[in-house]
Amino acid sequence: MQIFVKGLTGKTTTLEVEPSDTIENVKAKIQDKTGLPPDQQRLIFAGKQLEDGRTLSDYNIQKESTLHIVWR
């Protein structure tokens, strides 16, 4: 499925993911596209910070959802 990651600059990155992907895995995909290391990424969805060990489905993140990224 496709999801979007929007940064503070307003730039949006598209990712191809599975609902079973962990947040850690998603951060690795973001690094592949942007070069930003996972330890500098904070992902937010529906006002919650996403924890590395959880999956996208744990947070009810579905296709075409938009996550927000904040740099540490």
Score class of each variant (00 low, 15 high):
28 A>V: 12
40 Q>P: 02
38 P>H: 10
3 I>G: 01
40 Q>S: 11
6 K>T: 14
1 M>D: 02
30 I>Y: 10
32 D>W: 11
19 P>K: 06
64 E>C: 07
35 G>W: 03
59 Y>N: 02
65 S>C: 05
18 E>F: 12
10 G>L: 08
41 Q>T: 15
63 K>P: 14
49 Q>V: 13
26 V>G: 00
3 I>D: 01
72 R>G: 12
36 L>T: 09
64 E>I: 03
39 D>H: 11
24 E>H: 09
5 V>G: 02
23 I>E: 00
18 E>R: 13
19 P>L: 10
72 R>V: 15
63 K>R: 11
2 Q>D: 05
71 W>I: 15
19 P>I: 11
3 I>N: 00
69 I>N: 06
30 I>H: 03
25 N>V: 14
42 R>M: 15
57 S>N: 11
61 I>D: 00
23 I>T: 04
31 Q>G: 08
29 K>S: 03
24 E>T: 08
72 R>W: 10
60 N>H: 11
69 I>R: 02
17 V>W: 02
49 Q>F: 14
14 T>C: 06
68 H>I: 15
17 V>P: 00
53 G>E: 09
39 D>L: 08
8 L>T: 13
7 G>P: 07
41 Q>S: 08
14 T>I: 15
59 Y>E: 03
3 I>E: 01
35 G>V: 02
13 T>K: 05
63 K>V: 07
41 Q>A: 09
55 T>H: 05
25 N>L: 12
30 I>R: 00
51 E>H: 08
52 D>T: 05
39 D>F: 10
35 G>T: 03
32 D>K: 13
68 H>L: 13
36 L>H: 08
41 Q>D: 02
17 V>D: 00
19 P>Q: 08
63 K>Y: 06
10 G>I: 14
26 V>A: 02
47 G>W: 05
10 G>S: 08
51 E>K: 06
71 W>H: 11
71 W>E: 12
27 K>W: 06
69 I>H: 03
40 Q>K: 10
32 D>H: 14
28 A>D: 06
50 L>D: 00
47 G>E: 05
55 T>N: 05
62 Q>G: 13
33 K>S: 08
23 I>L: 05
68 H>R: 08
64 E>W: 12
50 L>M: 06
11 K>A: 13
6 K>R: 12
68 H>M: 14
66 T>P: 02
23 I>S: 02
18 E>V: 12
52 D>C: 04
6 K>M: 15
56 L>P: 01
63 K>E: 12
21 D>T: 10
48 K>T: 14
47 G>M: 04
19 P>C: 05
58 D>L: 02
18 E>Y: 13
67 L>C: 01
64 E>K: 07
41 Q>C: 08
72 R>K: 13
27 K>V: 02
12 T>P: 11
31 Q>E: 08
10 G>F: 09
37 P>Y: 07
18 E>G: 08
53 G>K: 13
52 D>W: 03
14 T>K: 08
48 K>H: 12
44 I>A: 05
26 V>N: 01
1 M>R: 02
61 I>P: 01
39 D>R: 11
61 I>Q: 00
37 P>V: 08
56 L>V: 08
45 F>L: 04
64 E>G: 14
23 I>A: 02
1 M>N: 02
48 K>E: 11
40 Q>N: 09
8 L>E: 10
37 P>H: 13
3 I>M: 03
38 P>S: 13
48 K>I: 15
20 S>L: 11
58 D>M: 05
22 T>N: 04
55 T>I: 07
64 E>S: 09
7 G>C: 07
14 T>W: 08
4 F>S: 04
38 P>R: 14
3 I>K: 00
49 Q>K: 09
56 L>N: 00
33 K>M: 10
32 D>E: 14
54 R>M: 12
24 E>G: 10
60 N>V: 04
3 I>Y: 01
65 S>Q: 08
26 V>H: 00
17 V>S: 02
15 L>Q: 01
5 V>E: 01
35 G>P: 02
9 T>V: 09
61 I>M: 04
28 A>G: 12
26 V>I: 13
60 N>E: 06
38 P>V: 12
19 P>H: 06
24 E>V: 06
42 R>F: 15
4 F>K: 06
46 A>T: 05
1 M>G: 02
36 L>A: 05
70 V>K: 08
11 K>R: 10
5 V>I: 14
6 K>F: 09
8 L>S: 12
4 F>Q: 05
23 I>R: 00
39 D>V: 08
23 I>H: 01
16 E>M: 13
28 A>W: 14
19 P>N: 05
37 P>D: 09
37 P>T: 08
30 I>A: 02
66 T>W: 09
70 V>A: 10
4 F>I: 06
29 K>L: 10
10 G>V: 08
8 L>R: 10
4 F>G: 02
59 Y>R: 00
26 V>T: 04
6 K>V: 15
46 A>W: 07
65 S>G: 06
57 S>Q: 12
43 L>G: 00
56 L>T: 02
72 R>L: 15
70 V>P: 02
9 T>F: 12
36 L>S: 04
71 W>R: 12
23 I>G: 01
56 L>E: 00
51 E>S: 06
60 N>C: 05
16 E>K: 09
65 S>Y: 07
67 L>D: 00
5 V>H: 01
50 L>I: 04
72 R>N: 15
21 D>W: 11
1 M>K: 02
59 Y>L: 04
33 K>L: 15
31 Q>R: 12
31 Q>M: 08
16 E>S: 15
50 L>Q: 01
54 R>C: 06
58 D>K: 02
37 P>Q: 09
33 K>D: 05
46 A>G: 11
65 S>D: 13
20 S>D: 12
66 T>N: 04
11 K>E: 15
25 N>C: 06
7 G>A: 10
24 E>I: 10
30 I>Q: 01
12 T>M: 13
33 K>G: 05
43 L>M: 03
34 T>W: 14
67 L>E: 00
10 G>N: 09
10 G>A: 09
33 K>R: 09
68 H>F: 12
2 Q>F: 11
9 T>P: 13
45 F>Y: 13
71 W>N: 11
44 I>K: 05
19 P>F: 06
47 G>A: 04
56 L>S: 00
32 D>R: 14
27 K>A: 02
44 I>T: 10
37 P>N: 10
13 T>R: 05
67 L>F: 03
43 L>W: 03
54 R>T: 06
57 S>R: 10
70 V>G: 07
19 P>W: 06
9 T>E: 12
55 T>P: 05
70 V>D: 07
52 D>G: 06
30 I>C: 02
26 V>C: 03
56 L>K: 00
40 Q>W: 11
37 P>G: 08
41 Q>K: 06
11 K>D: 14
68 H>A: 07
29 K>V: 04
29 K>W: 04
29 K>P: 00
67 L>N: 01
8 L>I: 13
15 L>G: 00
44 I>R: 05
7 G>M: 12
33 K>W: 11
15 L>H: 03
59 Y>S: 02
28 A>I: 13
27 K>P: 00
1 M>I: 10
41 Q>R: 03
58 D>P: 00
22 T>Q: 04
11 K>W: 15
3 I>A: 01
20 S>G: 11
28 A>N: 10
24 E>W: 13
71 W>K: 09
20 S>E: 12
71 W>V: 14
57 S>F: 09
50 L>A: 01
67 L>H: 01
20 S>R: 09
25 N>H: 10
67 L>V: 08
20 S>I: 06
39 D>E: 14
26 V>W: 00
66 T>A: 04
52 D>M: 05
40 Q>I: 08
2 Q>T: 11
50 L>W: 01
58 D>V: 03
6 K>A: 09
57 S>C: 04
29 K>E: 03
48 K>Y: 10
41 Q>M: 15
23 I>C: 02
5 V>D: 01
